[in-house]
Amino acid sequence: MSDETYPSYDLLDVLCPMHAVLNASGHVLHAGPTLQKVFAGKPLIGERFLEIAELRRPHVAETMAGLRGCHGARLHLRLRDGVRTGMKGVLIALPQVAASLGPPGGAIINLSFGISVVDAVRDFGLNAGDFPATDLTIEMLYLIEAKSAAMEASRKLNLRLQGARIAAEEQAYTDTLTGLKNRRAMDHVLERLMQTEQDFALMHLDLDYFKQVNDTLGHAAGDQVLQNVARRILAQTRADDLVARTGGDEFVLILAGVTARARLSEIATRLILCLEEPVMYNGQECRVSGSIGATLSCAYETPDLARMMEDSDLALYAAKARGRACHVLYDPALRADPPLHGTD
Protein backbone atom coordinates (compact mmCIF):
# COMPACT_ATOMS: atom_id res chain seq x y z
CA MET A 1 0.00 0.00 0.00
CA SER A 2 1.47 3.33 -1.00
CA ASP A 3 1.36 6.72 0.69
CA GLU A 4 -0.71 8.25 -2.08
CA THR A 5 -3.72 6.16 -1.16
CA TYR A 6 -4.15 8.19 1.99
CA PRO A 7 -4.03 11.91 1.32
CA SER A 8 -4.82 12.54 4.98
CA TYR A 9 -1.13 12.01 5.82
CA ASP A 10 -0.58 15.58 4.64
CA LEU A 11 -2.92 16.67 7.36
CA LEU A 12 -1.12 14.55 9.96
CA ASP A 13 2.24 15.88 8.82
CA VAL A 14 1.12 19.38 9.78
CA LEU A 15 -0.87 18.58 12.90
CA CYS A 16 1.32 15.79 14.28
CA PRO A 17 4.77 15.96 12.68
CA MET A 18 5.99 13.24 15.02
CA HIS A 19 3.47 10.60 13.95
CA ALA A 20 4.07 7.23 12.31
CA VAL A 21 1.63 5.15 10.32
CA LEU A 22 2.04 1.41 10.85
CA ASN A 23 0.66 -1.27 8.55
CA ALA A 24 -1.10 -4.42 9.73
CA SER A 25 2.21 -6.18 10.32
CA GLY A 26 3.50 -3.32 12.49
CA HIS A 27 5.96 -1.90 9.95
CA VAL A 28 6.37 1.85 9.48
CA LEU A 29 4.59 2.94 6.34
CA HIS A 30 4.89 6.67 6.73
CA ALA A 31 6.46 9.06 9.24
CA GLY A 32 5.85 12.74 9.95
CA PRO A 33 8.63 15.18 9.00
CA THR A 34 9.97 15.69 12.53
CA LEU A 35 10.11 11.96 13.22
CA GLN A 36 11.98 11.56 9.94
CA LYS A 37 14.43 14.22 11.12
CA VAL A 38 14.93 12.33 14.38
CA PHE A 39 15.77 9.21 12.38
CA ALA A 40 17.88 11.07 9.84
CA GLY A 41 20.37 8.61 8.38
CA LYS A 42 18.85 5.69 10.27
CA PRO A 43 16.31 3.19 8.92
CA LEU A 44 12.71 4.13 9.67
CA ILE A 45 10.34 3.56 6.75
CA GLY A 46 9.75 -0.14 6.26
CA GLU A 47 11.18 -1.03 9.71
CA ARG A 48 9.15 -2.92 12.27
CA PHE A 49 8.11 -0.22 14.76
CA LEU A 50 8.91 -2.27 17.85
CA GLU A 51 12.42 -2.80 16.56
CA ILE A 52 13.16 0.91 16.45
CA ALA A 53 11.29 1.78 19.64
CA GLU A 54 10.84 -0.10 22.89
CA LEU A 55 7.43 0.07 24.59
CA ARG A 56 8.22 0.44 28.30
CA ARG A 57 4.70 0.93 29.58
CA PRO A 58 2.13 -0.58 29.46
CA HIS A 59 3.67 -4.02 29.38
CA VAL A 60 2.19 -5.89 26.46
CA ALA A 61 3.31 -8.58 24.06
CA GLU A 62 5.84 -7.16 21.60
CA THR A 63 3.58 -7.79 18.66
CA MET A 64 1.31 -5.70 16.49
CA ALA A 65 -1.66 -7.22 18.33
CA GLY A 66 -0.13 -6.09 21.61
CA LEU A 67 0.42 -2.58 20.27
CA ARG A 68 -3.12 -2.35 18.87
CA GLY A 69 -4.38 -3.36 22.29
CA CYS A 70 -2.97 -0.11 23.67
CA HIS A 71 -5.48 1.91 21.62
CA GLY A 72 -5.93 5.33 23.22
CA ALA A 73 -3.67 4.63 26.19
CA ARG A 74 -0.71 6.77 27.30
CA LEU A 75 2.44 5.09 26.05
CA HIS A 76 5.96 5.38 27.42
CA LEU A 77 8.56 4.46 24.85
CA ARG A 78 12.28 4.56 24.39
CA LEU A 79 13.99 4.75 21.04
CA ARG A 80 16.48 1.99 20.41
CA ASP A 81 18.92 4.64 19.12
CA GLY A 82 22.32 5.50 20.52
CA VAL A 83 21.06 7.97 23.14
CA ARG A 84 17.92 5.94 23.98
CA THR A 85 15.67 9.00 23.83
CA GLY A 86 12.58 8.72 26.01
CA MET A 87 9.22 9.43 24.35
CA LYS A 88 5.56 9.67 25.15
CA GLY A 89 2.96 8.53 22.69
CA VAL A 90 -0.59 7.61 21.93
CA LEU A 91 -1.75 5.01 19.41
CA ILE A 92 -4.94 4.69 17.41
CA ALA A 93 -5.68 1.19 16.16
CA LEU A 94 -7.16 1.40 12.66
CA PRO A 95 -10.26 -0.70 11.80
CA GLN A 96 -9.70 -4.07 10.13
CA VAL A 97 -11.97 -3.14 7.22
CA ALA A 98 -10.79 -0.61 4.65
CA ALA A 99 -10.81 2.86 6.14
CA SER A 100 -9.85 6.28 4.85
CA LEU A 101 -7.50 7.02 7.78
CA GLY A 102 -4.87 4.44 6.97
CA PRO A 103 -4.09 0.79 6.29
CA PRO A 104 -6.72 -1.66 7.61
CA GLY A 105 -5.49 -3.45 10.73
CA GLY A 106 -2.69 -0.90 11.05
CA ALA A 107 -2.22 1.92 13.53
CA ILE A 108 -1.31 5.57 13.77
CA ILE A 109 1.01 6.46 16.62
CA ASN A 110 1.78 10.04 17.63
CA LEU A 111 4.93 10.72 19.61
CA SER A 112 6.35 13.52 21.73
CA PHE A 113 9.59 13.94 23.65
CA GLY A 114 7.94 14.60 26.98
CA ILE A 115 10.41 15.64 29.63
CA SER A 116 13.48 14.72 27.54
CA VAL A 117 12.69 17.52 25.09
CA VAL A 118 15.69 19.70 26.03
CA ASP A 119 18.17 16.93 25.23
CA ALA A 120 16.19 15.84 22.18
CA VAL A 121 16.17 19.31 20.65
CA ARG A 122 19.95 19.40 20.99
CA ASP A 123 20.58 15.79 19.99
CA PHE A 124 18.46 16.00 16.84
CA GLY A 125 19.06 19.67 15.96
CA LEU A 126 15.36 20.51 16.00
CA ASN A 127 14.04 24.04 15.50
CA ALA A 128 10.76 25.91 15.84
CA GLY A 129 9.51 24.64 12.47
CA ASP A 130 9.78 21.05 13.65
CA PHE A 131 7.03 21.48 16.20
CA PRO A 132 3.36 22.03 15.43
CA ALA A 133 2.30 25.68 15.56
CA THR A 134 0.08 24.96 18.58
CA ASP A 135 2.74 23.02 20.46
CA LEU A 136 4.10 24.59 23.66
CA THR A 137 7.60 23.15 23.28
CA ILE A 138 9.14 26.44 22.14
CA GLU A 139 7.55 28.28 25.06
CA MET A 140 8.83 25.62 27.39
CA LEU A 141 12.37 25.83 26.00
CA TYR A 142 12.16 29.60 26.31
CA LEU A 143 11.10 29.32 29.94
CA ILE A 144 13.78 26.78 30.78
CA GLU A 145 16.42 29.03 29.28
CA ALA A 146 15.08 32.22 30.83
CA LYS A 147 14.72 30.61 34.24
CA SER A 148 18.18 29.07 34.02
CA ALA A 149 19.66 32.49 33.25
CA ALA A 150 17.78 34.05 36.16
CA MET A 151 18.79 31.18 38.42
CA GLU A 152 22.42 31.58 37.42
CA ALA A 153 22.28 35.28 38.30
CA SER A 154 20.76 34.39 41.68
CA ARG A 155 23.36 31.73 42.25
CA LYS A 156 26.14 34.24 41.62
CA LEU A 157 24.51 36.70 44.02
CA ASN A 158 24.36 33.97 46.66
CA LEU A 159 28.03 33.17 46.16
CA ARG A 160 28.99 36.82 46.51
CA LEU A 161 26.85 37.21 49.62
CA GLN A 162 28.44 34.12 51.10
CA GLY A 163 31.88 35.55 50.35
CA ALA A 164 30.89 38.79 52.07
CA ARG A 165 29.60 36.85 55.07
CA ILE A 166 32.85 34.92 55.41
CA ALA A 167 34.83 38.14 55.15
CA ALA A 168 32.62 39.75 57.81
CA GLU A 169 33.05 36.74 60.09
CA GLU A 170 36.78 36.74 59.53
CA GLN A 171 36.82 40.42 60.48
CA ALA A 172 34.72 39.81 63.54
CA TYR A 173 37.39 37.39 64.79
CA THR A 174 40.26 39.75 64.10
CA ASP A 175 41.83 42.57 66.05
CA THR A 176 41.98 45.28 63.40
CA LEU A 177 45.09 47.03 64.75
CA THR A 178 47.41 44.02 64.92
CA GLY A 179 45.68 41.45 62.69
CA LEU A 180 45.82 39.04 65.63
CA LYS A 181 42.70 37.20 66.75
CA ASN A 182 40.38 38.85 69.26
CA ARG A 183 38.71 37.67 72.44
CA ARG A 184 35.76 36.22 70.52
CA ALA A 185 38.05 34.06 68.43
CA MET A 186 39.90 32.99 71.55
CA ASP A 187 36.68 31.93 73.31
CA HIS A 188 35.70 30.02 70.20
CA VAL A 189 38.99 28.13 69.99
CA LEU A 190 39.13 27.41 73.72
CA GLU A 191 35.63 25.99 73.63
CA ARG A 192 36.54 23.75 70.70
CA LEU A 193 39.66 22.50 72.46
CA MET A 194 37.65 21.67 75.57
CA GLN A 195 34.98 19.89 73.58
CA THR A 196 37.48 17.79 71.69
CA GLU A 197 39.52 17.21 74.88
CA GLN A 198 42.79 18.27 73.32
CA ASP A 199 45.74 19.26 75.47
CA PHE A 200 47.05 22.80 75.21
CA ALA A 201 48.95 25.46 77.09
CA LEU A 202 47.26 28.73 78.03
CA MET A 203 49.49 31.76 78.29
CA HIS A 204 48.74 35.31 79.46
CA LEU A 205 51.21 37.90 78.24
CA ASP A 206 51.22 41.54 79.34
CA LEU A 207 53.61 44.05 77.86
CA ASP A 208 55.82 45.80 80.41
CA TYR A 209 56.70 49.50 80.10
CA PHE A 210 54.14 49.91 77.29
CA LYS A 211 52.39 52.70 79.19
CA GLN A 212 55.65 54.70 79.23
CA VAL A 213 55.93 54.44 75.44
CA ASN A 214 52.37 55.66 75.04
CA ASP A 215 52.85 58.48 77.53
CA THR A 216 56.19 59.76 76.24
CA LEU A 217 55.98 59.12 72.48
CA GLY A 218 52.23 59.14 71.89
CA HIS A 219 49.62 56.65 70.76
CA ALA A 220 50.99 56.35 67.24
CA ALA A 221 54.24 55.03 68.69
CA GLY A 222 52.24 52.74 70.95
CA ASP A 223 50.32 51.38 67.98
CA GLN A 224 53.52 50.73 66.12
CA VAL A 225 54.94 48.85 69.10
CA LEU A 226 51.80 46.73 69.29
CA GLN A 227 51.97 45.89 65.60
CA ASN A 228 55.64 44.99 65.86
CA VAL A 229 55.09 42.91 68.94
CA ALA A 230 52.22 41.08 67.25
CA ARG A 231 54.47 40.15 64.32
CA ARG A 232 57.20 38.93 66.62
CA ILE A 233 54.88 36.79 68.71
CA LEU A 234 53.42 35.27 65.55
CA ALA A 235 56.93 34.50 64.33
CA GLN A 236 57.62 32.58 67.56
CA THR A 237 54.45 30.50 67.37
CA ARG A 238 53.18 27.80 65.03
CA ALA A 239 50.28 28.02 62.60
CA ASP A 240 48.07 25.89 64.89
CA ASP A 241 48.59 28.22 67.83
CA LEU A 242 46.24 31.09 68.51
CA VAL A 243 47.51 34.53 69.42
CA ALA A 244 44.83 36.96 70.56
CA ARG A 245 45.01 40.55 71.72
CA THR A 246 42.48 40.68 74.53
CA GLY A 247 43.12 44.19 75.83
CA GLY A 248 45.31 47.25 75.23
CA ASP A 249 48.65 45.55 75.89
CA GLU A 250 47.33 42.14 76.93
CA PHE A 251 47.70 39.02 74.86
CA VAL A 252 46.56 35.44 75.25
CA LEU A 253 48.32 32.56 73.53
CA ILE A 254 46.84 29.11 73.11
CA LEU A 255 49.55 26.61 72.27
CA ALA A 256 47.98 23.43 70.96
CA GLY A 257 49.47 20.11 72.02
CA VAL A 258 51.94 21.56 74.54
CA THR A 259 52.05 19.35 77.66
CA ALA A 260 55.57 19.72 79.09
CA ARG A 261 56.42 22.43 81.61
CA ALA A 262 59.97 22.58 80.32
CA ARG A 263 58.79 23.23 76.77
CA LEU A 264 56.31 25.88 77.93
CA SER A 265 59.04 27.53 79.95
CA GLU A 266 61.33 27.57 76.94
CA ILE A 267 58.67 29.16 74.73
CA ALA A 268 57.98 31.85 77.35
CA THR A 269 61.67 32.69 77.65
CA ARG A 270 62.00 32.99 73.90
CA LEU A 271 58.92 35.21 73.67
CA ILE A 272 60.18 37.65 76.30
CA LEU A 273 63.57 37.82 74.61
CA CYS A 274 62.05 38.72 71.27
CA LEU A 275 59.82 41.39 72.84
CA GLU A 276 62.84 43.14 74.29
CA GLU A 277 64.30 43.91 70.88
CA PRO A 278 63.73 47.68 70.61
CA VAL A 279 61.15 49.04 68.15
CA MET A 280 62.17 52.14 66.18
CA TYR A 281 59.63 54.93 65.92
CA ASN A 282 60.62 58.17 64.15
CA GLY A 283 64.24 57.52 65.00
CA GLN A 284 63.37 56.88 68.64
CA GLU A 285 63.94 53.58 70.37
CA CYS A 286 60.88 52.17 72.08
CA ARG A 287 61.75 49.48 74.57
CA VAL A 288 59.20 47.16 76.09
CA SER A 289 59.30 43.74 77.64
CA GLY A 290 56.74 41.20 78.72
CA SER A 291 55.53 39.26 81.72
CA ILE A 292 54.05 35.85 81.20
CA GLY A 293 51.87 33.58 83.24
CA ALA A 294 50.90 30.19 81.91
CA THR A 295 49.29 26.91 82.70
CA LEU A 296 48.87 23.50 81.09
CA SER A 297 45.57 21.72 80.53
CA CYS A 298 47.21 18.38 81.27
CA ALA A 299 47.96 19.55 84.82
CA TYR A 300 44.26 19.28 85.67
CA GLU A 301 42.29 16.13 86.35
CA THR A 302 39.38 17.61 84.40
CA PRO A 303 40.36 20.88 82.78
CA ASP A 304 37.96 23.72 83.45
CA LEU A 305 38.23 26.83 81.29
CA ALA A 306 37.38 29.39 83.95
CA ARG A 307 39.78 27.76 86.36
CA MET A 308 42.59 27.66 83.81
CA MET A 309 42.08 31.32 82.88
CA GLU A 310 42.20 32.27 86.54
CA ASP A 311 45.33 30.20 87.22
CA SER A 312 47.15 31.55 84.19
CA ASP A 313 46.24 35.07 85.23
CA LEU A 314 47.41 34.39 88.77
CA ALA A 315 50.75 33.18 87.38
CA LEU A 316 51.00 36.39 85.35
CA TYR A 317 50.60 38.49 88.47
CA ALA A 318 53.23 36.40 90.19
CA ALA A 319 55.59 37.14 87.26
CA LYS A 320 54.89 40.86 87.50
CA ALA A 321 55.47 40.69 91.26
CA ARG A 322 58.82 39.05 90.63
CA GLY A 323 60.06 42.17 88.88
CA ARG A 324 58.56 41.78 85.38
CA ALA A 325 60.27 40.57 82.18
CA CYS A 326 59.96 37.02 83.42
CA HIS A 327 57.52 34.14 83.32
CA VAL A 328 55.81 32.02 85.93
CA LEU A 329 54.11 28.68 85.32
CA TYR A 330 51.12 28.07 87.50
CA ASP A 331 51.69 25.99 90.57
CA PRO A 332 49.10 25.36 93.31
CA ALA A 333 51.62 26.82 95.73
CA LEU A 334 50.90 30.24 94.17
CA ARG A 335 47.45 30.11 95.70
CA ALA A 336 48.88 29.44 99.16
CA ASP A 337 51.12 32.47 98.82
CA PRO A 338 49.36 34.86 96.45
CA PRO A 339 51.46 37.77 95.30
CA LEU A 340 50.44 41.31 96.13
CA HIS A 341 48.06 42.78 93.60
CA GLY A 342 48.04 46.29 92.34
CA THR A 343 51.74 46.64 91.69
CA ASP A 344 51.26 47.26 87.99
Binding site: D119, L126, N127, E145, S148, A149
Partner: peptide
Amino acid sequence: SFELGAGGLTG
Protein backbone atom coordinates in the same frame (compact mmCIF):
# COMPACT_ATOMS: atom_id res chain seq x y z
CA SER B 1 22.82 30.96 13.84
CA PHE B 2 20.33 30.07 16.50
CA GLU B 3 20.01 26.54 17.82
CA LEU B 4 17.13 25.90 20.16
CA GLY B 5 18.97 23.58 22.52
CA ALA B 6 22.26 25.48 22.68
CA GLY B 7 21.43 27.50 25.81
CA GLY B 8 19.19 25.37 27.93
CA LEU B 9 20.24 24.06 31.27
CA THR B 10 23.90 24.76 30.90
CA GLY B 11 23.52 28.32 29.60
